[in-house]
Amino acid sequence: MAEPVEGALPRSSAGFSWAGFPWAEFAACLVFVAAFAIPSFTRSQLIYSIANQALVGVVAALSVWIMLRMNLLTFATPAFMAIGGYSVAILAPMGVTDAFALTAISFVVPALLALPLGALVLRLRGTYFVLVTYVLSEILQLILFMTPDLTGGSNGISGIPAVTFLGTELVSNRAVLKMACAIGLVACLITAGVTRYFRQHFAAIEENEILAESLGLVIWRYKVIGFVVAAGVAGLAGFSLVNMLLTAHPSSFSSGSAVDFIAYTIIGGRASILGPVVGTGLLVWATNLFGTQGQLAQGMYGVLILAVVLAAKGGITGSIATLFRRVRGAN
């Protein structure tokens, strides 16, 4: 679906076409690769902290973005983050500290839980789906509080041992940041892979679900695939968050934080994978400008959401793309 549009540009001369190349996905992955270099440039703890927050946020936003590909808004991101994060927090003290193993676990556990859930829930229409995901987030919060033996209840789990990479403990802030970059890169590759592979299906669902269904597409199957992958990616974000804080606490996964991830994605722009990446980066940075008045950032998100919905449909990345096209058209 996306190819013919870009393919309209006559670029292919020698049988190979750059037009079909997934530029946005490539650029998004590059951002994560570039983030590895941050510790080489600075020792500022503030920048480490902002970068780490952004890397957690962007992975969560990628999870939201996958669902938005299918025109579905999800509030369940914190729930799946919690499942991924708590899986790590529970298993690490038992001796599972290997970075690869934990990354896999934090993706697979929420994804597996999402499978039956998605199969049930995704037959519902858009509005009901939104409500279900909201309810899921609330339920998970309550479950966290009510299972103190497993999750530490309202105290959460603290004193989690550091992640090990090929036998080396990742304890320093630099090492933790690099781990966050690695998780981000994995999440970005998975997101890019799934949304590229199923792009025609997702585009058809986004465009006109009823039409797609009447053309024989088994809609809910693709929705479930998207939902499962989005849950896994959210789990990765949960792992990244727990790794940053070295604790797993219910307040880290409050249902209210879902609004932040939605804001990152919508404001960044939902048309391309660069949207959540750019949106999260800018908004986390801007939030830190507020300093101790961090709660005020919510108001800014609110204003920006109104602006995007009413005026700049494509968000930041979409508006830049439009501007770019206009400038090029004018020349």
Binding site: Q298, I305, L306
Partner: peptide, 14 residues
């Protein structure tokens, strides 16, 4: 939905 969400964020921040 996004608009009402945005309004909520603005009102509570105000």
């Amino acid at each position: 939905l996004m608009l009402t969400l945005g309004l909520y964020l603005i009102v509570s921040t105000a």
